[in-house]
Design a protein around this nucleic acid. Structure first.
Lengths: 292, 292
DNA sequence: TGAGAAAGACTCAGTTTGAGAACAACTGGC
DNA sequence: GCCAGTTGTTCTCAAACTGAGTCTTTCTCA
């Protein structure tokens, strides 16, 4: 019984997979940035069927034999935003998860490897004005204690902690994406998963700084957390916490002029520190509703 | 410039990808379990080239048009362990990440979607005795503050927090897998990523219970944490913590007979609670070395 | 029967957190 | 130029949480 998998693998290995495995591989990118204090996601309008005219995440096919998944994601992001290599270096890009239900693309079986990007404010992607260009769409209000689908960590099958059902089809209904974002394919879910990953990631890594420029104030940083988490934070406690976590930020010794402010003293400027993890972490306030 | 991605996507969409995208898609499973208090991983010996005779993670090709990635992973795990659907229901299975460097398989460009499984003690996979059967291998001693590669979260490109190098090829050397595990392909890294995910996951989810049977003692649970983290824990504090986190475990009201113990009172039995997240989390002791 | 081991309950000091107050620096409107 | 309102930053205080250790009781093994 245990040998069947091996046998089959050897059998398949002898074949040229071109003949029998018509699965296409694409990368899709959930690129997030902050604009006017609100979280935005990069989206493209689909030019043709399927889902013509609908919004979708930017992405495309992986070039077989030529590039890694990471490289493909970076290439797609660069193409869609017009970023050069230097600008791309300021963007944080990490793998989010893969989506491979056979019916997710009506044309054929397509496995999509999703990536998550945190970008500082970038020039409008639609500068060229062509119809199919990319645009930064505001991410609809996120209920702070909302129920994300968390695909990369979603348990499979009906384990004892998956729920009460004992032997159904095993296919559960998809939780809805953020309200008001009708994306093509399963990109609603990919976006929802990306948002949840982003919210979790800034808890224990200093990646919130990836949304900001070279230097920033503590308030700028707080604005990132508030936008991503969708919750106002206590300014004093946030300040204390950020400065107390070793390696999160380091002082530039300068103070900024704060254009557009409604008053208040000039804030000190900081840059990202050398920490890769926040220790202790900066936890989201009260997620009681999220626990079970 | 922004139009190029869209143009290309449309161009490709018009094609039958069978003609131009010879990328195969496989799933590989990092299945973990506890045996004699030590962490073990399910491995198979490769029957043929490439890497003939070497250990590899169990896995195989995704059946195009017929199954999702999750289903393929569950199928492969079932085939390799001889688990039926009921037994498989007790196993936690989640997506780990995808690996797609063009040279990772010498035969062709293969994208592998890796899964991570937590299993309670299972019968030996080699029961049949056939040469190519699967085996549970002890995971080599894990340095508690070791440096995992953390692929699913690895940042890409040379962002300002990636390091000091300013413009290399962008291809960094792979951090080594756990000492003493020469696996085929890039499965060393997949395993290392799976271990790191497992260590992180039991911090903030109750998934450590997935390594145990229906009922267990607090000591059993502590043994899971100690094996996965590779660190001894303070029994008293662990006990207090587990019982204080709402929904982690619930009492069965019974006490177990503890065969194989070296003395001590009979411990109370618990079962997994209904929490999906541990709040507050059960953090690994001191990872200072891991922070930067 | 006694030594050793483990379960589980407690104690205590140090750290971290949430909530709020206080104060100075600065803006914009008048 | 003055005033009200806003914001950056520091402090205080109580509650919660953590790590380290002790103590008692129950059990196994020699």
């Amino acid at each position: 019984m245990t040998g069947r998998g091996q046998e089959e693998r050897d059998f398949l290995a002898a074949y040229d997979p071109r003949d029998f495995a018509p699965i296409a591989v694409t990368v899709d990118v959930v690129a997030l940035t902050l604009r006017e204090g609100r979280l935005h996601v990069l989206a493209v309008r689909r030019g043709g069927p399927p889902f013509a005219g609908e919004w979708a995440l930017p992405g495309g096919f992986v070039r077989a034999g030529q590039e890694s998944l990471d490289e493909a994601a970076a290439r797609e992001l660069a193409e869609e935003t017009g970023l050069d290599a230097a600008a791309l270096g300021r963007v944080h890009l990490e793998q989010l998860g893969s989506y491979g239900r056979p019916d997710r693309d009506p044309r054929m079986h397509v496995v999509s490897v999703a990536y998550l990007a945190f970008a500082p404010r970038l020039p409008d992607a639609t500068a060229g004005g062509d119809a199919a260009g990319a645009e930064w769409l505001p991410v609809p209000a996120i209920s702070p204690a909302g129920q994300p689908s968390s695909a990369p960590s979603r348990p499979i099958g009906q384990g004892r902690r998956t729920g009460t059902h004992g032997g159904g089809t095993g296919r559960r209904p998809l939780p809805p994406g953020p309200a008001g974002t009708p994306f093509a394919f399963d990109h609603d879910r990919v976006l929802a998963d990306g948002l949840e990953r982003a919210r979790a990631k800034i808890e224990y890594t200093p990646l919130a700084t990836a949304f900001l420029g070279e230097t920033f104030t503590i308030s700028d940083l707080r604005a990132v957390y508030e936008a991503v988490w969708g919750t106002p934070l206590h300014a004093g406690n946030f300040h204390r916490k950020v400065l107390s976590v070793p390696g999160f930020v380091e002082s530039t010794g300068e103070t900024g002029t704060r254009p557009g402010s409604r008053g208040g003293p000039r804030a000190r400027l900081y840059r990202a520190g050398d920490a890769r993890r926040l220790h202790p972490a900066l936890l989201r306030p009260d997620r009681e509703a999220d626990v079970r």
